[in-house]
Amino acid sequence: MSTEDQADNDQDLLRRMASKDAQALELFYDRYYRVAFALVIRIVRVRQEAEDVLAEVFWQVWRQSGRYTPSRGKPLSWLLTIARTRAIDSLRASNRRPQADSNEMDAPSRVPQEDPSAQASTRIAISRCLELLSREQRVPLEMAYFEGMSHSEIAGALNQPLGTMKDRIRTAMTTLRKCLKPREASA
């Protein structure tokens, strides 16, 4: 199934959820719980809390499925936005700043383990795009996305001028955008 077909199919599941079809939620959960959990646990770091957050994320998807519109992105993007927001809220509530271990910060993002719910080729392609980023570009990106820090907080934490920090984020995002575009176009 192409990513577009998958997105249509996901939108259909969301429509069914809005009509209170619990089986649609079950299918949506089975399809995406691994990627959502990987994101949540990367942010909150504690398994028990990550599982609580994951349940809250899919409960929110169930309750708000009627409000989803394609202008919010593909259903998977919408799900990951909810997962990231919930996880960062949980992290702030527990007053923990994620201590990314140095190995993880230094090494390019690893190729994911086998995951039956996602197309392996897509995820390998994404990992290759992430490997195009230098450490200087990747670190501020990860501080924003995984730690919920604003550009000025990142500039302060890394002791860099705001303009420099914005430049690095811009270069990294543009690199990812260009690298991912051919894959989307061919999907």
Binding site: A22, L25, E26, Y29, Y33, R34, V35, F37, A38, L39, I41, R42, R47, A50, E51, L54, A55, F58, W59, W62, G73, L76, S77, L80, T81, A83, R84, S109, R110, P112, Q113, E114, D115, A118, T122, R123, I126, S127, C129, L130, L141, E142, Y145, F146, M173, L176, R177, L180, K181, E184
Partner: peptide
């Protein structure tokens, strides 16, 4: 939408992780 896809790649590039089956049971 275009930049959202780029940002989403950070999550999609993470190693897969599996929660306990109890999460789904509780949700359902």
């Amino acid at each position: 939408l275009e930049f959202q896809n780029a940002a989403q790649s950070l999550a999609m590039g993470l190693p897969s992780n599996t929660p306990s089956g109890a999460v789904k049971e509780r949700l359902m």
